[in-house]
Amino acid sequence: MNPKLTRRRFIKGVIASGAAVTSTSIWYAANGAERPAGSVERLIRINVNGQMRSVDVAPQETLASTLRYKLGLTGTKLGCNRGECGACTVLVDDTPSYACSVLTHSVKSMRIETVEGLQSANGDLHPVQQAFVEELSPQCGYCTPGQVMAAVGLLRANPNPTREEAQQGMAGNICRCGSYDSYLNGVMRAAQIG
């Protein structure tokens, strides 16, 4: 538990994070009381899109749940919630990861990036987003945030992939509309945009 946590600081943190004040662990945290022996600290701070967010996280909570239901970042989609489809792909320390299969507690010291964090402050789309618009890569769009994050991760690791490398790099993301060709066109265009 953060020894510097005060009731005022805690409440400000919760308001900033948009988290609901409901759990007993938060009560312990807010009142400076020791949590029960053997329990897991629930009020943690995680780095999401460059901002430190205070959030109440259950021990078994997935990153997808935290992002969607605690932090209101609903751009991260749940298609299967069991590591099959990639709709929930986010970057954890630059690596594309299925947020449905990552425990939030396991990434609290890492940088998490979601689709909401890509657009620049002046409103410019990220090159991958811009390229996906120009190529009309999405169809229904439900898998798109995951495809975007997978492409961003791929291009950070390999800024100039061949189409084959892009295909391999994106292969963890399913698109039921079958827009793979259009997404690959987008990835290749994004690599050109830089």
């Binding site: 609903t74 751009g75 987003q129 009309l136 999405p138 769009g141």
Partner: peptide
């Protein structure tokens, strides 16, 4: 002619809402 459909930016930014996002 091609055009940019009004919803496509919402799809690439994650801002467009599906039923569970409300």
């Amino acid at each position: 002619k091609d055009f940019v459909p009004p919803d496509v930016v919402g799809k690439v930014t994650g801002r467009i809402k599906y039923s569970e996002d409300y």
